[in-house]
Nucleic acid binder design. Sequence first.
DNA 1: TAGATTGTTAATCGATTAACAATC
DNA 2: TAGATTGTTAATCGATTAACAATC
Lengths: 217, 217
Amino acid sequence: MNTKRTNIENVPKAVVNRLSLYLRELQQLMRAEKMTISSTNLGRRLGLTAAQVRKDFAYFGQFGYPGIGYRCEELAAEIRQILGTDRVWPVALIGCGNLGQALLGYKGFKKQGFRIVAAFDVDRSIVGTEIESLKVHHLDELLSMSQALEIRLAILAVPSSAANSVVEKLVEAGILGILNFAPVTLNLPKSVSIVGVDLAMELEQLAFAVVKQGERQ
Amino acid sequence: MNTKRTNIENVPKAVVNRLSLYLRELQQLMRAEKMTISSTNLGRRLGLTAAQVRKDFAYFGQFGYPGIGYRCEELAAEIRQILGTDRVWPVALIGCGNLGQALLGYKGFKKQGFRIVAAFDVDRSIVGTEIESLKVHHLDELLSMSQALEIRLAILAVPSSAANSVVEKLVEAGILGILNFAPVTLNLPKSVSIVGVDLAMELEQLAFAVVKQGERQ
DNA sequence: TAGATTGTTAATCGATTAACAATC
DNA sequence: TAGATTGTTAATCGATTAACAATC
């Protein structure tokens, strides 16, 4: 009966991506004290068709009420469970330069269940200092601390030149998911997941969109 | 003849995304002093099929040499021209908190042709100060400075609660592309392009991947 | 009951892959 | 010439949309 719920294997990546988007929108709706939302309205807000919204949820189960829509609280809870963010994830931060420090202070993580519990660097002028009341450790301590704190996720904010050698250490330390800010392709075993955020690439996409729009007429 | 070059309208967004990826990889190859690369090898590095690599380029023209592959320098230049990053883009930064300040110092932008030339905030304790040798202006000056400096792109690093009201000002100021770090859906005219970077969402995607992987056996 | 909206199936659309003649 | 690799067409695959019976 709930064969579908567990058959999580062949869900398109784009669907999982939208799941995060739905969750964010639901949280906004809840802040506005809306109790329910229809697929039509949820879709309209996000620029998606109603059919697509319903189809996306259908991969994981039946969460809606015909004639009513989806109860925001309930649907949000379901999505959190699917994504695995119904619990707190301890996260390691690797690289405490400009960007790393900003990420340490970023409030948005906590709200979605992520907590940076350990920070690492190799720079002697940074190791040992405290940032946002978290002590910065030398990268050599990664393995022991990851095990002690049961860390599975890491944020990689090191220079591109260092990224791939750090990745080897992350893998050794049992890290299973890496959020990579270094603008390079990482080489890793397929058992480890990666999400890349390349800030310059994002601006490139914007530049293209603007140029294209400009050429239209 | 070059009808294809100009028919930039109906290129899938995924292709443009990969264009940025190819460019990044080519730059890495050039640093390693490789002169040419085949679609097979470029694809292997990025986890794509050779056919897909060639098809992607075919949207824009014929850049390769049968029997040889693609000349790295040449292909990189072509991609930059397609993306519109063969010139320097002045960029406005809105919001100079933790994240904004880190972005101001981020070296990766300059390398791809983006220059943050104006920074804005509304916080009295920040306005007037200098960050990375750039003076922070009050948001009220956005319109005049955008016009004076011919700014078309903006990076939005303000709190979610402020995001949508700031967006209205960006639109008024003639901004055509917004890189949004606030975890909310923005309402904007379709003439303005948007790329959203939601850091918590990225971690959610990782969490899901790890949970899924864990369930496999 | 009438109205609204779901979950799901079938039809459509678009993107990826395979294959191969043309080219260097 | 033989070997490598492109650009492109056709075949395949997957994702989105439309439609509608079932449900509240």
